[in-house]
Amino acid sequence: MTPLLSAHGLTKTYGPRIACAGVDLDITEGEVLAIVGESGSGKSTLLSMLAGELAPDAGEIRYRDREGRVRALGAIGPAELRSLARTDWGFVRQDAAQGLRMAVSAGGNVGERLMGLGERHYGNIRACALDWLDRVEIAADRIDDPPTRFSGGMRQRLQIARNLVTAPRLVLMDEPTSGLDVSVQARLLDLIRRLSGELGLAVVIVTHDLAVARLLSHRIAVMRAGRVVETGLTDQVLDDPADAYTQLLVSSVLAA
């Protein structure tokens, strides 16, 4: 089967600094792919390129659209690219303030994509927002509160609802659980795992936390200095790491 998204030889440099070098990966529906590595290893640059927000210096990203056509991301015009980003894709950011409209109520945050698609019935938008808030375990009576009044965990869950409301096929997540308390993190991980399974999403999750990668992902790519040094089944890479760097990474984790 053709992957939903595939990247070939993705390269991005900032002057002499290599952010990404020759990265290949692919992902299809129902799969969770974790990209792990230290900060500065190029994970977030890679994610930005996959999201179409950053043009690679070299290499290509192909996406299979809803009509089954495989398209090169670089050949899709900005209007369609933005439309895809609002409907077919989701992007859950580490900093909720970048992924949410902080001055807009929770309901408005969830409803924005629907209104962007032309939904013009307030009652329908409201009902849909309530349904999604419920699915991400945010109480219905918080629908008119802005995210500034939400805790860190709630903000991330709101981001997820805001992204999933248009039934996207691909969701990119950049360190969605970092900075959260452990118990809050667990709840979020459970939610991401459940929704991605139920909805058959393709998820690319960038994390520096190997435990997050182990719990959520089927496959893993370990990055170092802009390159993927090891990739494979998540449990295999973590339990029987072959690459020297992966071994270092795995052995550096504090056991709970």
Binding site: R86, R101, V104, S105, G107, G108, G111, E112, R113, L114, M115, G116, L117, R120, Y122, I125, R126, I143, D144
Partner: peptide, 13 residues
Amino acid sequence: GLMHVKLYEDISR
């Protein structure tokens, strides 16, 4: 869509 978010906010408030 964002313009309607403003109107949505009005109605919700």
